[in-house]
Design a protein around this nucleic acid. Sequence first.
DNA 1: ATGGATTTTTTTGTTGACAAAAGTATGATA
DNA 2: TATCATACTTTTGTCAACAAAAAAATCCAT
Lengths: 233, 233
Amino acid sequence: MTKWNISPVNSYSYEPLRIQVYNVLREAIVNGEFMPDEKLTELEIAEHLSVSRTPVREAFRMLEQEELITIIPQQGVFVSGIKSRKEIDDLFRVRVELEGLAAYLAARNINEEQIKQLKKYAEEIEQCIEENDLKGCVRIDIAFHRIIKEASANKWLERFLDNLFMQATRFRMKSLAQEGRMVNALNEHRRLGEAITRGEAELARRYMEEHIQAAWKSILAVFEEEHKDQKGV
Amino acid sequence: MTKWNISPVNSYSYEPLRIQVYNVLREAIVNGEFMPDEKLTELEIAEHLSVSRTPVREAFRMLEQEELITIIPQQGVFVSGIKSRKEIDDLFRVRVELEGLAAYLAARNINEEQIKQLKKYAEEIEQCIEENDLKGCVRIDIAFHRIIKEASANKWLERFLDNLFMQATRFRMKSLAQEGRMVNALNEHRRLGEAITRGEAELARRYMEEHIQAAWKSILAVFEEEHKDQKGV
DNA sequence: ATGGATTTTTTTGTTGACAAAAGTATGATA
DNA sequence: TATCATACTTTTGTCAACAAAAAAATCCAT
Protein backbone atom coordinates (compact mmCIF):
# COMPACT_ATOMS: atom_id res chain seq x y z
CA MET A 1 0.00 0.00 0.00
CA THR A 2 2.76 2.47 -0.76
CA LYS A 3 1.57 3.33 -4.22
CA TRP A 4 0.96 6.94 -3.16
CA ASN A 5 2.43 9.20 -0.56
CA ILE A 6 -0.68 10.97 0.70
CA SER A 7 -1.22 12.32 4.20
CA PRO A 8 -3.62 10.50 6.46
CA VAL A 9 -6.76 12.11 7.84
CA ASN A 10 -6.86 13.17 11.45
CA SER A 11 -9.42 11.25 13.48
CA TYR A 12 -9.38 13.83 16.25
CA SER A 13 -10.24 16.75 14.00
CA TYR A 14 -13.67 18.30 14.27
CA GLU A 15 -13.72 18.81 10.54
CA PRO A 16 -15.99 16.43 8.65
CA LEU A 17 -14.09 13.65 6.93
CA ARG A 18 -15.21 14.80 3.49
CA ILE A 19 -13.35 18.08 3.98
CA GLN A 20 -10.21 16.39 5.22
CA VAL A 21 -10.32 13.96 2.30
CA TYR A 22 -10.94 16.86 -0.06
CA ASN A 23 -7.89 18.71 1.25
CA VAL A 24 -5.65 15.67 1.08
CA LEU A 25 -6.69 14.82 -2.47
CA ARG A 26 -6.41 18.41 -3.67
CA GLU A 27 -2.86 18.67 -2.37
CA ALA A 28 -1.98 15.33 -3.89
CA ILE A 29 -3.28 16.33 -7.31
CA VAL A 30 -1.73 19.80 -7.31
CA ASN A 31 1.63 18.42 -6.16
CA GLY A 32 1.59 15.78 -8.86
CA GLU A 33 1.26 12.85 -6.49
CA PHE A 34 -1.29 11.37 -8.87
CA MET A 35 -0.49 11.05 -12.53
CA PRO A 36 -2.68 12.89 -15.06
CA ASP A 37 -5.43 10.62 -16.42
CA GLU A 38 -4.87 8.19 -13.57
CA LYS A 39 -8.08 6.56 -12.44
CA LEU A 40 -8.95 6.99 -8.78
CA THR A 41 -11.24 4.32 -7.37
CA GLU A 42 -13.34 5.12 -4.36
CA LEU A 43 -12.41 2.00 -2.43
CA GLU A 44 -8.68 2.38 -2.96
CA ILE A 45 -8.66 5.99 -1.72
CA ALA A 46 -10.99 5.13 1.12
CA GLU A 47 -8.75 2.29 2.32
CA HIS A 48 -5.63 4.42 2.02
CA LEU A 49 -7.20 7.03 4.28
CA SER A 50 -9.03 4.55 6.51
CA VAL A 51 -12.46 5.99 5.90
CA SER A 52 -15.54 4.68 4.15
CA ARG A 53 -16.44 5.41 0.54
CA THR A 54 -19.00 8.10 1.39
CA PRO A 55 -16.64 10.94 2.38
CA VAL A 56 -14.43 10.04 -0.58
CA ARG A 57 -17.38 10.30 -2.94
CA GLU A 58 -18.34 13.67 -1.51
CA ALA A 59 -14.77 14.93 -1.83
CA PHE A 60 -14.84 13.82 -5.47
CA ARG A 61 -17.95 15.93 -6.13
CA MET A 62 -16.17 18.96 -4.71
CA LEU A 63 -12.99 18.40 -6.66
CA GLU A 64 -14.95 17.97 -9.87
CA GLN A 65 -16.27 21.53 -9.77
CA GLU A 66 -12.68 22.78 -9.77
CA GLU A 67 -11.70 20.67 -12.75
CA LEU A 68 -9.03 18.90 -10.74
CA ILE A 69 -10.72 15.63 -11.62
CA THR A 70 -13.15 14.51 -14.29
CA ILE A 71 -16.04 12.25 -13.32
CA ILE A 72 -17.59 10.05 -15.98
CA PRO A 73 -20.81 8.54 -14.61
CA GLN A 74 -20.75 4.78 -14.23
CA GLN A 75 -17.10 4.76 -15.16
CA GLY A 76 -15.05 6.59 -12.63
CA VAL A 77 -12.89 9.48 -11.58
CA PHE A 78 -9.86 10.56 -13.56
CA VAL A 79 -7.15 13.02 -12.61
CA SER A 80 -7.21 16.03 -14.92
CA GLY A 81 -4.06 16.99 -16.71
CA ILE A 82 -3.15 19.84 -18.98
CA LYS A 83 -2.58 18.12 -22.26
CA SER A 84 -2.85 20.58 -25.08
CA ARG A 85 -1.46 23.97 -25.90
CA LYS A 86 -5.01 25.27 -26.18
CA GLU A 87 -5.68 24.38 -22.57
CA ILE A 88 -2.67 26.41 -21.47
CA ASP A 89 -3.79 29.30 -23.64
CA ASP A 90 -7.34 29.17 -22.26
CA LEU A 91 -6.05 29.16 -18.73
CA PHE A 92 -3.65 32.06 -19.14
CA ARG A 93 -5.95 34.13 -21.30
CA VAL A 94 -8.33 34.32 -18.34
CA ARG A 95 -5.56 34.58 -15.78
CA VAL A 96 -4.07 37.66 -17.42
CA GLU A 97 -7.41 39.37 -17.10
CA LEU A 98 -8.19 38.33 -13.53
CA GLU A 99 -4.72 38.77 -12.03
CA GLY A 100 -4.66 42.17 -13.71
CA LEU A 101 -7.92 43.10 -12.06
CA ALA A 102 -6.62 41.81 -8.74
CA ALA A 103 -3.54 44.02 -8.97
CA TYR A 104 -5.72 46.99 -9.88
CA LEU A 105 -7.99 46.46 -6.89
CA ALA A 106 -5.09 45.64 -4.59
CA ALA A 107 -3.45 48.97 -5.40
CA ARG A 108 -6.63 50.69 -4.21
CA ASN A 109 -7.36 48.57 -1.14
CA ILE A 110 -4.09 47.33 0.27
CA ASN A 111 -3.44 47.99 3.97
CA GLU A 112 -0.23 48.57 5.92
CA GLU A 113 0.04 44.99 7.12
CA GLN A 114 -0.16 43.65 3.57
CA ILE A 115 2.36 46.18 2.30
CA LYS A 116 4.77 45.01 4.96
CA GLN A 117 4.35 41.42 3.88
CA LEU A 118 4.85 42.32 0.24
CA LYS A 119 8.14 43.96 1.12
CA LYS A 120 9.21 40.99 3.19
CA TYR A 121 8.63 38.67 0.25
CA ALA A 122 10.58 40.99 -2.03
CA GLU A 123 13.60 40.57 0.23
CA GLU A 124 13.16 36.84 0.73
CA ILE A 125 12.90 36.10 -2.98
CA GLU A 126 16.11 38.00 -3.62
CA GLN A 127 17.85 35.71 -1.18
CA CYS A 128 16.32 32.62 -2.76
CA ILE A 129 17.67 33.63 -6.13
CA GLU A 130 21.17 34.14 -4.74
CA GLU A 131 21.06 30.68 -3.22
CA ASN A 132 19.43 29.29 -6.36
CA ASP A 133 16.68 27.89 -4.13
CA LEU A 134 14.02 26.95 -6.66
CA LYS A 135 11.51 25.59 -4.17
CA GLY A 136 11.81 28.69 -2.03
CA CYS A 137 11.22 30.86 -5.08
CA VAL A 138 8.05 28.98 -5.94
CA ARG A 139 6.82 29.27 -2.35
CA ILE A 140 7.34 33.01 -2.28
CA ASP A 141 5.90 33.49 -5.75
CA ILE A 142 2.75 31.79 -4.52
CA ALA A 143 2.67 33.90 -1.36
CA PHE A 144 3.19 37.09 -3.34
CA HIS A 145 0.22 36.41 -5.58
CA ARG A 146 -1.84 35.36 -2.58
CA ILE A 147 -1.33 38.71 -0.85
CA ILE A 148 -2.43 40.59 -3.94
CA LYS A 149 -5.40 38.30 -4.34
CA GLU A 150 -6.46 38.85 -0.74
CA ALA A 151 -5.88 42.59 -0.96
CA SER A 152 -8.30 42.73 -3.88
CA ALA A 153 -10.97 41.78 -1.34
CA ASN A 154 -13.34 40.46 -3.98
CA LYS A 155 -14.90 37.10 -3.19
CA TRP A 156 -15.44 36.02 -6.78
CA LEU A 157 -12.08 37.14 -7.98
CA GLU A 158 -10.40 35.25 -5.14
CA ARG A 159 -12.35 32.10 -5.88
CA PHE A 160 -11.61 32.13 -9.60
CA LEU A 161 -7.94 32.91 -9.10
CA ASP A 162 -7.68 30.00 -6.67
CA ASN A 163 -9.07 27.70 -9.33
CA LEU A 164 -6.71 28.93 -12.03
CA PHE A 165 -3.76 28.94 -9.70
CA MET A 166 -4.14 25.28 -8.80
CA GLN A 167 -4.20 24.34 -12.44
CA ALA A 168 -1.06 26.30 -13.16
CA THR A 169 0.86 24.96 -10.20
CA ARG A 170 2.13 21.85 -11.89
CA PHE A 171 3.91 23.99 -14.44
CA ARG A 172 5.21 26.64 -12.09
CA MET A 173 8.31 24.76 -10.99
CA LYS A 174 9.37 23.84 -14.49
CA SER A 175 8.75 27.34 -15.72
CA LEU A 176 10.83 29.03 -13.02
CA ALA A 177 13.60 26.50 -13.56
CA GLN A 178 14.22 27.97 -16.99
CA GLU A 179 17.37 29.96 -17.48
CA GLY A 180 16.80 33.58 -16.53
CA ARG A 181 13.13 33.22 -15.73
CA MET A 182 13.65 33.53 -12.00
CA VAL A 183 15.55 36.81 -12.27
CA ASN A 184 12.97 38.21 -14.67
CA ALA A 185 10.17 37.21 -12.34
CA LEU A 186 11.95 38.95 -9.50
CA ASN A 187 12.13 42.20 -11.45
CA GLU A 188 8.52 41.93 -12.53
CA HIS A 189 7.48 41.36 -8.93
CA ARG A 190 9.53 44.31 -7.73
CA ARG A 191 8.06 46.97 -9.97
CA LEU A 192 4.59 45.47 -9.50
CA GLY A 193 4.93 45.59 -5.72
CA GLU A 194 6.07 49.19 -5.89
CA ALA A 195 3.16 50.22 -8.10
CA ILE A 196 0.69 48.59 -5.73
CA THR A 197 2.34 50.16 -2.69
CA ARG A 198 2.14 53.59 -4.30
CA GLY A 199 -1.51 52.97 -5.12
CA GLU A 200 -1.05 53.34 -8.87
CA ALA A 201 -3.86 51.02 -9.88
CA GLU A 202 -3.74 51.18 -13.68
CA LEU A 203 0.03 50.81 -13.70
CA ALA A 204 -0.18 47.85 -11.34
CA ARG A 205 -2.67 46.22 -13.65
CA ARG A 206 -0.41 46.64 -16.65
CA TYR A 207 2.63 45.31 -14.81
CA MET A 208 0.68 42.31 -13.59
CA GLU A 209 -0.67 41.60 -17.07
CA GLU A 210 2.86 41.68 -18.42
CA HIS A 211 4.06 39.48 -15.60
CA ILE A 212 1.42 36.82 -16.30
CA GLN A 213 2.07 37.06 -20.02
CA ALA A 214 5.75 36.42 -19.39
CA ALA A 215 4.90 33.38 -17.28
CA TRP A 216 2.55 32.24 -20.05
CA LYS A 217 5.29 32.40 -22.65
CA SER A 218 7.70 30.67 -20.34
CA ILE A 219 5.31 27.81 -19.67
CA LEU A 220 4.56 27.45 -23.34
CA ALA A 221 8.25 27.10 -23.98
CA VAL A 222 8.48 24.30 -21.44
CA PHE A 223 5.43 22.64 -22.94
CA GLU A 224 6.67 22.84 -26.51
CA GLU A 225 10.01 21.47 -25.40
CA GLU A 226 8.34 18.49 -23.74
CA HIS A 227 6.15 17.77 -26.75
CA LYS A 228 8.41 18.65 -29.65
CA ASP A 229 8.88 15.03 -30.71
CA GLN A 230 5.27 14.05 -30.02
CA LYS A 231 3.62 16.03 -32.79
CA GLY A 232 0.56 14.25 -34.10
CA VAL A 233 0.60 11.47 -31.54
CA MET B 1 -46.06 18.59 0.70
CA THR B 2 -46.68 21.57 -1.54
CA LYS B 3 -44.26 23.85 0.19
CA TRP B 4 -42.15 24.07 -2.97
CA ASN B 5 -42.87 23.71 -6.64
CA ILE B 6 -39.85 21.74 -7.79
CA SER B 7 -39.72 19.28 -10.66
CA PRO B 8 -39.50 15.56 -9.89
CA VAL B 9 -36.58 13.43 -10.98
CA ASN B 10 -37.00 11.02 -13.85
CA SER B 11 -36.62 7.40 -12.82
CA TYR B 12 -36.08 6.28 -16.40
CA SER B 13 -33.16 8.61 -17.05
CA TYR B 14 -29.72 7.13 -17.36
CA GLU B 15 -28.28 10.11 -15.55
CA PRO B 16 -27.22 9.44 -11.98
CA LEU B 17 -29.70 10.75 -9.44
CA ARG B 18 -27.16 13.15 -7.97
CA ILE B 19 -27.00 14.99 -11.30
CA GLN B 20 -30.76 15.15 -11.66
CA VAL B 21 -31.11 16.38 -8.10
CA TYR B 22 -28.35 18.90 -8.73
CA ASN B 23 -30.13 20.25 -11.81
CA VAL B 24 -33.48 20.46 -10.07
CA LEU B 25 -32.07 22.28 -7.07
CA ARG B 26 -29.99 24.64 -9.16
CA GLU B 27 -33.02 25.68 -11.18
CA ALA B 28 -35.05 26.09 -8.02
CA ILE B 29 -32.46 28.33 -6.41
CA VAL B 30 -31.83 30.45 -9.50
CA ASN B 31 -35.55 30.89 -10.12
CA GLY B 32 -36.14 31.93 -6.55
CA GLU B 33 -38.17 28.88 -5.61
CA PHE B 34 -36.25 28.77 -2.35
CA MET B 35 -35.94 31.86 -0.23
CA PRO B 36 -32.48 33.26 0.50
CA ASP B 37 -31.14 31.98 3.83
CA GLU B 38 -33.75 29.24 3.85
CA LYS B 39 -32.44 26.05 5.40
CA LEU B 40 -32.63 22.95 3.22
CA THR B 41 -32.70 19.66 5.09
CA GLU B 42 -31.53 16.53 3.36
CA LEU B 43 -34.52 14.44 4.32
CA GLU B 44 -37.08 16.99 3.21
CA ILE B 45 -35.52 17.40 -0.23
CA ALA B 46 -35.02 13.65 -0.52
CA GLU B 47 -38.66 12.93 0.25
CA HIS B 48 -39.88 15.63 -2.12
CA LEU B 49 -37.91 14.03 -4.93
CA SER B 50 -38.50 10.44 -3.82
CA VAL B 51 -34.84 9.57 -3.53
CA SER B 52 -32.60 8.74 -0.60
CA ARG B 53 -30.40 11.23 1.20
CA THR B 54 -27.22 10.14 -0.57
CA PRO B 55 -27.81 11.77 -3.98
CA VAL B 56 -29.14 14.86 -2.23
CA ARG B 57 -25.98 15.15 -0.18
CA GLU B 58 -23.81 14.81 -3.27
CA ALA B 59 -25.85 17.44 -5.09
CA PHE B 60 -25.30 19.75 -2.13
CA ARG B 61 -21.53 19.35 -2.40
CA MET B 62 -21.71 20.34 -6.06
CA LEU B 63 -23.93 23.34 -5.45
CA GLU B 64 -21.66 24.54 -2.69
CA GLN B 65 -18.72 25.07 -5.05
CA GLU B 66 -20.88 27.48 -7.07
CA GLU B 67 -21.89 29.49 -4.03
CA LEU B 68 -25.54 28.75 -4.65
CA ILE B 69 -25.72 27.31 -1.15
CA THR B 70 -23.60 27.61 1.96
CA ILE B 71 -22.86 24.49 3.98
CA ILE B 72 -22.04 24.86 7.64
CA PRO B 73 -20.73 21.54 8.97
CA GLN B 74 -22.92 19.90 11.58
CA GLN B 75 -25.53 22.55 11.04
CA GLY B 76 -26.90 22.41 7.58
CA VAL B 77 -27.35 23.85 4.12
CA PHE B 78 -28.54 27.40 3.54
CA VAL B 79 -29.62 29.05 0.32
CA SER B 80 -27.27 31.87 -0.62
CA GLY B 81 -28.69 35.27 -1.25
CA ILE B 82 -27.18 38.55 -2.40
CA LYS B 83 -27.59 40.70 0.64
CA SER B 84 -25.22 43.63 0.45
CA ARG B 85 -24.26 46.25 -2.06
CA LYS B 86 -20.66 45.04 -1.84
CA GLU B 87 -21.68 41.60 -3.04
CA ILE B 88 -23.30 43.10 -6.12
CA ASP B 89 -20.22 45.21 -6.74
CA ASP B 90 -17.90 42.22 -6.36
CA LEU B 91 -19.98 40.21 -8.78
CA PHE B 92 -20.19 42.86 -11.46
CA ARG B 93 -16.62 44.04 -11.12
CA VAL B 94 -15.54 40.58 -12.25
CA ARG B 95 -18.35 40.20 -14.74
CA VAL B 96 -17.38 43.36 -16.60
CA GLU B 97 -13.92 41.95 -17.08
CA LEU B 98 -14.94 38.44 -18.11
CA GLU B 99 -17.88 39.31 -20.35
CA GLY B 100 -15.62 41.85 -22.00
CA LEU B 101 -13.03 39.19 -22.66
CA ALA B 102 -15.75 36.87 -23.98
CA ALA B 103 -16.92 39.50 -26.45
CA TYR B 104 -13.34 40.10 -27.55
CA LEU B 105 -12.73 36.42 -28.17
CA ALA B 106 -16.14 35.91 -29.75
CA ALA B 107 -15.41 38.61 -32.30
CA ARG B 108 -12.35 36.63 -33.35
CA ASN B 109 -13.82 33.12 -33.27
CA ILE B 110 -17.49 33.34 -34.11
CA ASN B 111 -18.77 31.11 -36.92
CA GLU B 112 -21.57 31.55 -39.45
CA GLU B 113 -24.06 29.48 -37.48
CA GLN B 114 -23.56 31.59 -34.37
CA ILE B 115 -23.80 34.84 -36.32
CA LYS B 116 -27.15 33.67 -37.69
CA GLN B 117 -28.40 32.96 -34.19
CA LEU B 118 -27.21 36.33 -32.95
CA LYS B 119 -29.20 38.02 -35.70
CA LYS B 120 -32.26 35.93 -34.94
CA TYR B 121 -32.15 37.02 -31.31
CA ALA B 122 -31.77 40.65 -32.35
CA GLU B 123 -35.07 40.38 -34.25
CA GLU B 124 -36.85 38.41 -31.56
CA ILE B 125 -35.96 40.83 -28.79
CA GLU B 126 -37.28 43.73 -30.84
CA GLN B 127 -40.62 41.97 -31.02
CA CYS B 128 -40.58 41.23 -27.30
CA ILE B 129 -40.11 44.91 -26.54
CA GLU B 130 -43.00 45.89 -28.78
CA GLU B 131 -45.22 43.40 -26.98
CA ASN B 132 -43.76 44.45 -23.62
CA ASP B 133 -43.00 40.77 -23.01
CA LEU B 134 -40.64 40.93 -20.05
CA LYS B 135 -40.13 37.19 -19.67
CA GLY B 136 -39.35 36.85 -23.35
CA CYS B 137 -36.81 39.65 -23.08
CA VAL B 138 -35.06 37.94 -20.22
CA ARG B 139 -35.00 34.64 -22.10
CA ILE B 140 -33.43 36.21 -25.17
CA ASP B 141 -30.99 38.27 -23.12
CA ILE B 142 -29.78 35.03 -21.57
CA ALA B 143 -29.53 33.33 -24.96
CA PHE B 144 -27.64 36.29 -26.41
CA HIS B 145 -25.00 36.16 -23.72
CA ARG B 146 -24.82 32.38 -24.01
CA ILE B 147 -23.95 32.56 -27.71
CA ILE B 148 -21.16 35.00 -27.06
CA LYS B 149 -19.91 32.90 -24.19
CA GLU B 150 -19.86 29.78 -26.36
CA ALA B 151 -18.25 31.61 -29.25
CA SER B 152 -15.40 32.60 -26.95
CA ALA B 153 -14.56 28.88 -26.88
CA ASN B 154 -12.60 29.14 -23.65
CA LYS B 155 -13.40 26.49 -21.08
CA TRP B 156 -12.47 28.56 -18.03
CA LEU B 157 -14.17 31.67 -19.22
CA GLU B 158 -17.35 29.74 -19.89
CA ARG B 159 -17.28 28.11 -16.49
CA PHE B 160 -16.74 31.35 -14.60
CA LEU B 161 -19.37 33.21 -16.59
CA ASP B 162 -21.85 30.46 -15.84
CA ASN B 163 -21.20 30.91 -12.14
CA LEU B 164 -21.59 34.68 -12.24
CA PHE B 165 -24.62 34.49 -14.48
CA MET B 166 -26.53 32.27 -12.09
CA GLN B 167 -25.91 34.67 -9.26
CA ALA B 168 -27.11 37.62 -11.28
CA THR B 169 -30.23 35.91 -12.55
CA ARG B 170 -32.39 36.73 -9.58
CA PHE B 171 -31.90 40.41 -10.28
CA ARG B 172 -32.22 40.27 -14.04
CA MET B 173 -36.00 40.40 -14.18
CA LYS B 174 -36.29 43.31 -11.78
CA SER B 175 -33.57 45.20 -13.57
CA LEU B 176 -35.11 44.86 -17.02
CA ALA B 177 -38.48 45.82 -15.61
CA GLN B 178 -37.16 49.31 -14.97
CA GLU B 179 -38.43 52.12 -17.15
CA GLY B 180 -36.32 52.39 -20.27
CA ARG B 181 -33.85 49.67 -19.36
CA MET B 182 -35.23 47.21 -21.90
CA VAL B 183 -34.87 49.63 -24.82
CA ASN B 184 -31.36 50.58 -23.73
CA ALA B 185 -30.39 46.93 -23.45
CA LEU B 186 -31.71 46.36 -26.95
CA ASN B 187 -29.53 49.11 -28.38
CA GLU B 188 -26.52 47.91 -26.45
CA HIS B 189 -27.07 44.41 -27.77
CA ARG B 190 -27.45 45.63 -31.31
CA ARG B 191 -24.19 47.53 -31.60
CA LEU B 192 -22.41 44.77 -29.69
CA GLY B 193 -23.76 42.11 -32.05
CA GLU B 194 -22.66 44.16 -35.04
CA ALA B 195 -19.16 44.66 -33.69
CA ILE B 196 -18.79 40.94 -33.07
CA THR B 197 -20.16 40.08 -36.50
CA ARG B 198 -17.68 42.43 -38.14
CA GLY B 199 -14.88 40.89 -36.10
CA GLU B 200 -13.94 44.13 -34.36
CA ALA B 201 -12.65 42.55 -31.18
CA GLU B 202 -11.52 45.58 -29.17
CA LEU B 203 -14.68 47.46 -29.99
CA ALA B 204 -16.81 44.48 -29.04
CA ARG B 205 -15.03 44.32 -25.71
CA ARG B 206 -15.69 47.97 -25.00
CA TYR B 207 -19.35 47.73 -25.96
CA MET B 208 -19.78 44.66 -23.76
CA GLU B 209 -18.07 46.34 -20.84
CA GLU B 210 -20.41 49.28 -21.18
CA HIS B 211 -23.39 46.97 -21.46
CA ILE B 212 -22.50 45.13 -18.24
CA GLN B 213 -21.77 48.40 -16.48
CA ALA B 214 -25.22 49.66 -17.46
CA ALA B 215 -26.80 46.49 -16.10
CA TRP B 216 -24.73 46.94 -12.95
CA LYS B 217 -26.03 50.45 -12.40
CA SER B 218 -29.55 49.35 -13.13
CA ILE B 219 -29.39 46.50 -10.62
CA LEU B 220 -27.89 48.79 -8.00
CA ALA B 221 -30.82 51.14 -8.48
CA VAL B 222 -33.25 48.30 -7.87
CA PHE B 223 -31.28 47.20 -4.84
CA GLU B 224 -31.08 50.67 -3.30
CA GLU B 225 -34.80 51.12 -3.91
CA GLU B 226 -35.56 47.88 -2.08
CA HIS B 227 -33.33 48.75 0.86
CA LYS B 228 -33.77 52.49 1.19
CA ASP B 229 -35.76 52.21 4.42
CA GLN B 230 -33.61 49.44 5.85
CA LYS B 231 -30.43 51.38 6.41
CA GLY B 232 -28.56 50.14 9.44
CA VAL B 233 -30.86 47.19 10.09
C1' DA C 1 -43.49 34.56 33.76
C1' DT C 2 -38.10 34.19 33.14
C1' DG C 3 -33.68 31.86 32.98
C1' DG C 4 -31.20 27.90 32.88
C1' DA C 5 -30.33 22.93 33.17
C1' DT C 6 -32.06 18.49 31.33
C1' DT C 7 -34.36 15.52 28.37
C1' DT C 8 -36.24 14.60 23.83
C1' DT C 9 -36.33 15.14 19.00
C1' DT C 10 -34.39 16.29 14.76
C1' DT C 11 -30.66 16.48 11.61
C1' DT C 12 -26.14 15.61 9.99
C1' DG C 13 -22.03 12.39 9.50
C1' DT C 14 -20.51 7.87 8.56
C1' DT C 15 -20.74 3.17 7.67
C1' DG C 16 -21.73 -1.23 5.48
C1' DA C 17 -24.94 -3.74 2.40
C1' DC C 18 -27.08 -4.53 -1.86
C1' DA C 19 -28.16 -3.57 -6.93
C1' DA C 20 -26.65 -2.46 -11.37
C1' DA C 21 -23.44 -1.25 -14.64
C1' DA C 22 -18.83 -1.55 -16.58
C1' DG C 23 -14.70 -3.99 -17.18
C1' DT C 24 -12.10 -8.43 -17.43
C1' DA C 25 -11.22 -13.10 -18.17
C1' DT C 26 -12.62 -17.50 -20.10
C1' DG C 27 -13.68 -20.48 -23.60
C1' DA C 28 -15.92 -22.14 -27.79
C1' DT C 29 -16.03 -21.59 -32.75
C1' DA C 30 -14.41 -20.38 -37.20
C1' DT D 1 -5.00 -17.13 -34.15
C1' DA D 2 -8.91 -14.03 -34.14
C1' DT D 3 -13.56 -13.15 -32.79
C1' DC D 4 -17.54 -13.29 -30.39
C1' DA D 5 -20.54 -14.79 -26.64
C1' DT D 6 -20.66 -15.94 -21.80
C1' DA D 7 -19.39 -16.04 -17.07
C1' DC D 8 -16.91 -13.71 -13.51
C1' DT D 9 -14.95 -9.74 -11.04
C1' DT D 10 -14.61 -5.14 -9.99
C1' DT D 11 -16.52 -0.68 -9.38
C1' DT D 12 -20.06 2.67 -9.14
C1' DG D 13 -24.85 4.07 -7.65
C1' DT D 14 -28.24 3.90 -4.17
C1' DC D 15 -30.23 2.83 0.06
C1' DA D 16 -31.17 2.07 4.96
C1' DA D 17 -29.25 1.83 9.62
C1' DC D 18 -26.56 3.59 13.26
C1' DA D 19 -23.72 7.28 15.81
C1' DA D 20 -23.04 11.85 17.14
C1' DA D 21 -23.93 16.50 17.14
C1' DA D 22 -27.18 20.34 17.12
C1' DA D 23 -31.77 22.13 17.86
C1' DA D 24 -36.07 22.07 20.24
C1' DA D 25 -38.98 21.08 23.99
C1' DT D 26 -39.69 20.22 28.78
C1' DC D 27 -39.16 20.96 33.45
C1' DC D 28 -37.68 23.16 37.58
C1' DA D 29 -36.28 26.95 40.55
C1' DT D 30 -36.50 31.66 41.31
